[in-house]
Computed example of a mutant assay.
Amino acid sequence: MSETPQPYHIVFLLFDGITQLDFTGPAQFLARIPGAVVHTAATSLKPIETDSGFAIVPNTSLVDCPQADLLCVPGGFGTRDIIQDKEILQFLRDQAAGAQYVTSVCTGSLALGAAGLLQGKRATTHWAYTSLLEKFGAIYEASRVVQDNNIITAGGVTSGIDFALNVIAEIAGQPFAEAVQLGLEYDPDPPFNSGHPKVADPKLVAMLNARAYGDALNVLDDLLDAN
């Protein structure tokens, strides 16, 4: 008879304006870790408004959240609020002190930075916001997933799945991680070669920056300078 695995506590920070796939992508994979217990923590138990028109209900408050073995901070336009939230930043510092892994997806890395957790660390974030990492003393590395000791940062949105598989391999071994990848049929074959500025049409990159990311980048930049 196989032994029951010890609980492995995975804590995701939730907040209004979250990009839901930053959370749900890695959560789907990390939940397969033997003994995984997933905690979705927020300042209150009210539904969290995502960027996709639906809400997610947290299952614990910050105060009642258990110590994470793996802490993950997703991103989204709501990042501009959490990098100014003293309660959330202290929560991240407290959790990081006892976590095996401290991780982020997309602009969640900016919250780790605001909590003082990226000083001198190699890190990445969504391509539109990489210039902000240096404001936290981080060293930007152009990679989809960057690991510096127990700090793991992933780039934009879908890269959260890649980081999750890397962590699963470290915790449970590569064969187990490969089995998870196969079971969830993670076999990317996008119809277009347009997933990153290094391969996308420069006009498309400029359009996205003008319509979506430029203003958000400026707002975040101003907030960080003000602080």
Score class of each variant (00 low, 15 high):
Pro26Ser: 11
Leu71Pro: 02
His9Gln: 12
Ala154Trp: 03
Asp187Gln: 15
Ala172Val: 04
Pro202Ile: 01
Leu92Val: 11
Val57Arg: 14
Thr79Met: 09
Arg122Trp: 05
Glu3Ala: 15
Ser61Phe: 07
Ala138Asp: 04
Leu13Phe: 10
Leu30Tyr: 06
Arg80Gly: 08
Ile48Phe: 04
Met1Tyr: 15
Asp215Met: 10
Arg122Ser: 12
Ile171Gly: 02
Gly116Gln: 02
Gln181Tyr: 09
Gln95Glu: 07
Pro7Val: 03
Val157Thr: 09
Ser52Asp: 10
Gly160Asp: 08
Ala212Arg: 10
His9Ser: 10
Tyr8His: 03
Leu92Ser: 04
Ala114Val: 01
Asn150Glu: 07
Arg211Glu: 12
Val63Pro: 00
Tyr140Leu: 11
Gln174Phe: 10
Arg211His: 12
Gln67Gly: 12
Phe176Arg: 09
Gly155Glu: 00
Lys86Ser: 12
Ala128Ser: 15
Pro5Asp: 02
Gly78Glu: 04
Glu178Thr: 09
Val219Leu: 13
Asp162His: 03
Asn149Lys: 07
Ala200Tyr: 11
Val167Cys: 09
Gly156Trp: 04
Leu70Cys: 06
Leu21Ala: 08
Lys86Trp: 00
Ser109Ile: 00
Tyr8Asp: 02
Asp64Leu: 04
Arg122Val: 07
Leu118Lys: 12
Gln6Met: 09
Ser131Met: 11
Met207Trp: 13
Ser61Lys: 01
Leu89Ile: 11
Pro197Gln: 00
Asn227Asp: 08
Ala212Ser: 08
Gly137Asp: 11
Asp162Cys: 01
Thr43Asp: 12
Glu170Tyr: 03
Pro26Cys: 09
Thr79Gly: 14
Lys198Met: 07
Arg122Met: 11
Lys203Ser: 13
Ala96Lys: 04
Ser52Ala: 15
Ala138Ile: 02
Ser131Arg: 15
Ile139Arg: 13
Leu13Gly: 02
Glu185Ser: 10
Thr60Met: 09
Leu62Gly: 00
Ala99Tyr: 08
Cys65Arg: 00
Lys86Val: 14
Ala177Pro: 06
Gly214Arg: 07
Phe29Glu: 07
Ala36Pro: 07
Ser61Leu: 06
Arg93Ser: 10
Val57Asn: 15
Tyr140Lys: 09
Ser61His: 03
Val105Ala: 02
Leu117Val: 04
Gly120Ser: 11
Asp187Phe: 08
Leu204Pro: 06
Ala111Ser: 14
Ala212Trp: 10
Asp162Gln: 00
Lys121Thr: 08
